[in-house]
Write a protein that binds this DNA or RNA. Structure first.
Lengths: 342, 342
DNA sequence: TCGTCGTCATCAATCGATTGCAATATACCC
DNA sequence: GGGTATATTGCAATCGATTGATGACGACGA
């Protein structure tokens, strides 16, 4: 293991002061002779000198480091978000601390504190979707000494920049599409009990029905957590209804449903139509591919970074900014058009 | 945005010196009256004081932060590895910088430098599998001022702690199992051209064949990158052979193969048997589930952290440690037993 | 010879915390 | 009351880099 080389050592070797070396290596406008400049640069390179960011952060009061908290890095969507965000940060010379909390507000809080004490210049938060006790977290976020941007989901009623897809719209678009394809008995499988986003998707589903005068039938609304087994369990009841189509409000929910369908020997879209959400992962595997509401994590990352960037630059108003992105309906082959046969 | 509170401010408020405050808050053995202790703690709490880790790192010469470089955080396996590793680090009070490189040696190098200048105490490297020009990276790693542990794969011939699964053994176990089930014409689909791990898996495949005196037939060895489309392309040729079984040497390779099989209307294991690698993701989706060689990323993380921990504690010999883990064959339903019919 | 200007480079304070050593206050003993 | 032991607390250097304020030196004009 080599030793760390410091500014002072370089200075010593070239026979100049540390200040001069610092000035030159940072290309600061200063009056150091061309000759010495070259010498300094050469010696620094030869010794593999890299500035100690820690020391630099201390005096500069910025670390060019940002933090990200996601509920679960093992989820495809968050992993992708994290990947995109990291790349975007790096483009602007920021490093990104990616952390994964497990989803509880307590863990989120703990991680947030860790990030702050480690001197990140700002944090991206993907927190607050589940209904847990988030008072402490909320408190912490509102007193944060650095800018924060909430991504994909939000702690309700917290004044803070937000960037997210319109979940209500997603639910609406999915359902609306099914209606347009002639479906009238449309079930949905949502996580309304424990998730804000789930609630919104459900609201969109109901709005679409209401809009065309279809009844909102509680017997067609099913509850599922965002895990495959949970959806798998719930699916049996779904399939016992007379629904001709199902809106599966997340990728895992769709997967659980599909597994059950497969087991029961039901085919898509012959026996039942399905609109999924964020299902890109499964696309390769299924025939037909699933029609779905898609949210591009790259876009989310781009806008989130934009917000952060503004704050860091001191631009960006006193009031919180709120960016709402429209998801997209990607039509593939899992929905039967019932109108053709009329 | 609240302000950051410093040690000095606390000191001022309680009317004691910063040193005393530091001593008390860190529970250092020192002789500060019980009364003042209480006072200090109370004031610190009231002001939401959190120590500035940056300043602390500078003087303590450790940041209690580790770094991780993976080729692609969006891959399930790496995401899972990152998640496990992060949890493990946190248990010991370390934060983990997760970074994702894109897989080129240049990016790896850049990220490694970033991590080092940011003062991580050690790095986990998942690099060096592909055959790119890694001289600079190799150079950098061997002169690192902090401990490094290579995980899952390695830069060949570099003296450095390593923790990885035995890829040769994985290839061997998969093939051996197929042989035991009575298969004689066994194809394999590997990434031997651009991946060290791929080569090893291929070597294991060949060893198993040799061991029982089966011929090694180049016409049964197919090349595929670790991407679904690549495997999908390659699969047509595989299926044109007289093989009764295929060893698909990665999850994506298996998925590409399956897609092609599905399209051609071939069934598993009726028409052809398949042993996959790391396929846990797809498990939910397929009927029958795939028999596969599994590598638990959690175990990898555990051992990697163990190595790191030793180095950080100054234990761990002068020579590099090498941990080789055995993968596991998980038998499910994608392999037909040909011996039963004999 | 003195003052002035330009050029090149250095001094010293600073960021926020840690820590060995020095200093002060109080108690205790003879 | 002088001296020592003990309990408390403060000073100041340190980590490595940044930066506004200054200093040294030579040349040049008057």
């Amino acid at each position: 293991m080599a030793n760390k080389v410091t500014l002072k050592q370089i200075a010593q070797e070239v026979g100049l002061s540390p200040s001069s070396v610092s000035l030159v290596l940072n290309n600061r406008p200063c009056r150091i002779s061309e000759e010495n400049r070259k010498l300094i640069k050469e010696v620094a390179a030869r010794n593999h000198y890299v500035p100690n960011q820690i020391a630099r952060s201390l005096v500069m009061r910025e670390s060019r480091t940002l933090g990200l908290i996601v509920p679960n890095i093992e989820s495809r969507f968050f992993a992708s978000l994290a990947g995109s965000l990291e790349k975007r940060c790096r483009e602007d010379g920021y490093a990104l601390f990616i952390t994964s909390s497990g989803g509880s507000a307590d863990d989120d809080l703990e991680l947030l504190r860790q990030l702050v004490t480690r001197g990140v210049d700002g944090v991206f938060l993907v927190v607050g979707d589940e209904f847990s006790d988030d008072r402490a977290l909320r408190e912490e976020v509102s007193h944060l000494p650095i800018p924060a941007v909430m991504v994909d989901r939000a702690i309700e009623g917290l004044e803070c920049d937000k960037v997210m897809f319109d979940h209500e719209m997603g639910g609406y678009m999915a359902t609306r599409y099914l209606i347009e394809q002639g479906h009238r008995r449309i079930a949905c499988l949502v996580n309304a009990r424990r998730s804000n986003t789930g609630r919104k998707r459900l609201a969109g589903y109901e709005r679409a029905l209401r809009e065309v005068g279809l009844p909102i039938d509680a017997r067609l609304e099913f509850e599922s957590e965002y895990y495959i087994p949970s959806a798998y369990e719930a699916s049996e009841a779904v399939l016992a209804t007379d629904a001709t189509a199902v809106f599966a409000s997340s990728d895992n929910i769709a997967l659980g449903l599909l597994k059950r369908l497969h087991e029961m020997g039901k085919s898509i879209p012959g026996d039942i139509s399905v609109v999924s959400y964020d299902n890109s992962a499964a696309d390769v595997l299924f025939e037909p591919a699933l029609t779905a509401i898609e949210q591009d994590p790259g876009i989310l990352a781009e806008h989130a970074f934009g917000c952060m960037s503004k704050r860091l630059a001191g631009r960006g108003g006193r009031r919180a900014e709120e960016v709402v992105l429209e998801p997209e309906l990607i039509v593939k082959g899992s929905v039967l058009n019932l109108t053709k046969h009329n």
